[in-house]
Design a protein around this nucleic acid. Structure first.
Lengths: 188, 188
DNA sequence: GTCTATAAATTGATAGAC
DNA sequence: GTCTATCAATTTATAGAC
């Protein structure tokens, strides 16, 4: 699938360094075909962002249905980068690196706005689970932002240093920190 | 100065989207001149990285000479993004965004290796100050990494959301967290 | 819908006058 | 050392046969 190939390539090489010829080649179709399905290169990026958004919503839904306890859902969130550790170490967080690059297109670029929604979704999910775990509404926004910032920073460092060990150990630190920030469990 | 212009442009637009014509124009010199001073575009990027490294070392030296107390130095580190809040909100952390983009050139790229040194320096400085503040050697590395990750993640989110308020409030949170992680001051 | 060929624009890099 | 003109390669995008 065209979008699937583009999704991988944008993660591996970034938007700027990925040519439409790359996308065509990895999809196994000739270059001309790409333009039959997508008017411009930006349109492909937009489709990739949508795919990433669907991917995120899928993860959130899976964690939500798997665990009733919001703390367990938050643990899934923190540990998620370990599930794809190789990719994160080699290419960074797919959502964060997309934002990082597309934001450089300027505040007026539609791609920048679309990609920032990805991190927004991330924060929103964390905030919901924090509130469900008993964090006060006022505090939940700040804490959720702090959590996502910690995860994004961890991914950037693990990627830059290219160390899976760093990713694992720092995610454990984030997990311990988060537990210390949550209100004590009500032992009903 | 050529490098100065390139330094700004790489921060504002990134390496990939900055053309040598851009650099020439902002420097006020014709395009041909750029190639008299730098053999290739990569050579300019290398010079920019060196300039950023010197900039970092200068900041560290200033904080070190200004404060004897390592805690005060760490406060400077955490609050530093506020000094250039507009730039951080508009374009992200100059060091982090450079790493983010140049790492996509692949692990074998000399530019990727050079840029990763920037974050390495950052961690190293934090680690030194943490040890001086009484954090055990074993713990200092992990804590320093966690601190820099928090700062980098904060810069990314503040940039993506384009919110100076988010930058300020989240840096305050990082500062409070850091204080809670440091051993109690010895009231000598 | 699929594919080849090619146009049009951008941009890294060079040649050569001054 | 400085500047203009231009080459060569890449890449987005289109035209048109099948």
């Amino acid at each position: 699938m065209l979008v699937q190939a583009a999704r991988q390539l944008l993660h591996e090489q970034g938007f700027g360094r990925t040519t439409l010829a790359d996308v065509a080649e990895r999809s196994g179709v000739p270059l001309g075909n790409v333009y039959y399905y997508f008017k411009t290169k930006e349109a492909i990026a937009e489709a990739v962002i949508c795919a990433r958004e669907a991917e995120l919503r899928g993860l959130f839904a899976a964690w939500t249905s798997k665990h009733r306890d919001p703390r367990a859902r938050l643990r899934c969130l923190v540990r998620a980068p370990l599930e794809t550790a190789d990719e994160v170490v080699s290419f960074g967080c797919p959502y964060g690196s997309l934002c990082h690059e597309l934001e450089k297109l300027g505040p007026k670029s539609p791609l920048a706005a679309s990609s920032s929604r990805l991190l927004g979704l991330y924060i929103e999910f964390a905030e919901q689970q924090l509130r469900a775990a008993g964090v006060r509404t006022r505090e939940a926004t700040g804490l959720a932002t702090e959590l996502i910032a910690a995860l994004q920073g961890t991914a950037l460092l693990a990627h830059t240093i290219r160390s899976r060990a760093l990713l694992a150990s720092q995610l454990r630190r984030v997990e311990r920190w988060l537990e210390s920030e949550l209100p004590p469990t009500s032992l009903s």
